[in-house]
């Protein structure tokens, strides 16, 4: 299981990072005439989904070990950081193709709905990281009974 760290309430670097990310994006867009085709976002790319009780954040991280992953959550802000190491980098080999990359990554994202940061589960399976975050009771849809008069 990756480590999940809850930050103390008075510390908030996430908003700043997020702002910086947005400013950088804007700068890139301006300097390249609104188009920056090879920039598709920040690694890792994530898909976000929801059901009635949870929000799910998924990322493809093939070959990344859970011990090399660190996940932080505070309010609606989620940070995924880690390192991807590539095996088989022995000296005595002759590479024909090298398409896989290794390195560090850090992704800061704001969740689309309010969440309960005390109820988070993260799992890695077949190279896919799934972070399952509970929604607080007050935003869950409620069924309203219709009383007959």
């Amino acid at each position: 299981m990756p480590i999940i760290i809850r930050e103390p309430a008075d510390w908030d670097p996430f908003r700043e990072l997020e702002q910086l990310q947005r400013q950088m994006d804007r700068l890139f867009r301006q300097s390249f005439g609104g188009r920056f085709p090879w920039r598709v976002g920040v690694y890792p790319l994530v898909n976000i989904s929801e059901d009635r009780d949870y929000v799910y954040v998924r990322a493809e991280l093939p070959g990344v070990k859970p011990e090399n992953l660190e996940i932080h959550i505070r309010d609606k802000n989620l940070v995924i950081r880690g390192e991807r190491k590539i095996m088989g980098e022995e000296k005595d080999v002759n590479f024909h193709r090298r398409e896989r990359e290794s390195g560090f990554f850090r992704r800061v994202l704001t969740l689309p709905t309010p969440v309960n940061p005390d109820n988070v589960e993260a799992t890695c399976k077949d190279g896919i990281l799934t972070i399952k975050i509970a929604k607080p009771e007050e935003i869950k849809p409620r069924q309203i009974k219709v009383a007959s008069a």
Binding site: V40, N47, I48, E50
Partner: peptide
Amino acid sequence: PMGEGETLLSQEY
């Protein structure tokens, strides 16, 4: 890729 009853909110990959 997703559980039963899940709807996608944003997709990057």
